[in-house]
Design a protein around this nucleic acid. Structure first.
Lengths: 231, 231
DNA sequence: AACAGCTTATGATATTTATCATATTTTTGG
DNA sequence: CCAAAAATATGATAAATATCATAAGCTGTT
């Protein structure tokens, strides 16, 4: 992790219109004093389950995974988060400590805001609070709905779902390099690594995708979408 | 559904210390003008997936289920909610319409607050907003964590989980009447009705529970807890 | 270069879960 | 109160998924 040389550039932040929608210029200037940016390399840990929450974090660039260890010490990946998704969306306001870990799965930059200062801003600025409440709710909703959707599918539907997620939501390209291992996909969609691999192989032999190691090319997106919807 | 004769009794509301923690007496009086109470009989629908959200709803008494229909028209029960759990916790601030339905599974009374008025209160009262943000986050967190915990278990662990939930969280008694059918349990924990029935039968023949129709008696809670933790 | 460790891959098999069939009991509506 | 529908129950079987075994390919390190 590396602290980014921190010129106050909130004015240019692409998140500004969303995050700071309701904050006047004057308050916005203050934010520069509480916030700083951190850069993480692929694979680096951003925060750990159990850590005290001292900061509100969001992602400026990159890609991260949110995951937790269960009682049997097995990882469950809750979701992936891309920029404009808040990453410290849940736990932050409801807990003293994180109930999940965050790790960068691509080189990432986070913007960190001191939580106490943020809370002060919320308590003195109702409109900002309402905006934030909306964002936090949207982020939680998305996790809940996504989890339900994955849960109702079986093997092929789940693998199709995650491939379409990376293709459509993250890389916006039919060809992309998987930022995660087969095991991580398995930990996210709730199946074994072997079955993820097998399912990918099967999609390949049906000519729906091509596989070059970590690189996936979606050849027949219509069929993949049908598989996602109906199985 | 029946409108409850609506004397303003927020002062005595058991939710007051939580919900209105940060609202001064003066604002609190206003709330009486926007809120009203509704009584629902077991089985009655409180709101429907797709309905426009006009009110913030919470549960004064009773028990409800939150569920949604998926593309294949199959119900998925997201969670059960008891009093002090907000029931319009998600969607409310993030969506124009409910992305789930709510049905009373026991006679229930809701308190409904006009959403626009509530939003005005939020925007003019930052402390209240922060309190609400905390509550909404806690409610979402609980759903997310619960869903993950259920997901990682298999048949026996899931059935044990739901029995312990009703026994410990809802009825605080080793003997209780199930407020839901076997099918509804199945829709919640993601298995088939037959398997829920079979698993219950199996727990009975192992002497862990007794079954009298809808009435369940947990005979050996320690073993049930072990089953919940380890399968 | 060589080794260790991890990931990907695939086959064989075992286990888990769903589906289908059927019967009994309970609930609901006229 | 009765008939129909729904819920509960259980067995037999099929399908889905996990587990175990093995091997090849990659990756990082010394």
């Amino acid at each position: 992790m590396q602290l980014v040389n921190n010129q106050c550039n909130c004015e240019n932040c692409e998140l500004k219109p969303i995050f700071f929608e309701y904050v006047e210029e004057k308050s916005l200037e203050n934010i520069c004093n509480w916030k700083y940016e951190k850069a993480f390399r692929k694979g680096e840990n951003i925060s750990n389950q159990g850590d005290e929450i001292k900061e509100f974090i969001y992602l400026k660039s990159g890609l991260v995974k949110l995951y937790r260890k269960n009682e049997n010490d097995k990882d469950q990946i809750i979701s992936f988060a891309k920029p404009l998704d808040f990453i410290s969306l849940f736990s932050v306001f409801s807990n003293k400590s994180f109930n999940y870990s965050i790790t960068a799965i691509e080189d990432s930059v986070t913007c960190n805001i001191n939580l106490n200062e943020l809370k002060k801003l919320i308590s003195t600025n109702g409109n900002f609070a309402l905006g934030l409440l909306t964002k936090v709710s949207q982020a939680s909703d998305k996790i809940i709905i996504t989890t339900l959707e994955i849960k109702q599918k079986q093997t092929f539907g789940r693998v199709a779902y995650i491939l379409l997620y990376f293709s459509n939501e993250i890389y916006k390209n039919n060809s992309f390099e998987l930022p995660v291992s087969r095991k991580e996909i398995a930990d996210h969609i709730g199946m074994t690594t072997e079955n993820v691999i097998r399912t990918l192989s099967s999609l390949r032999s049906d000519g729906i995708i091509k596989i070059y190691g970590k690189i996936i090319e979606v050849v027949d997106k219509d069929r993949l979408q049908k598989i996602c919807n109906y199985s």
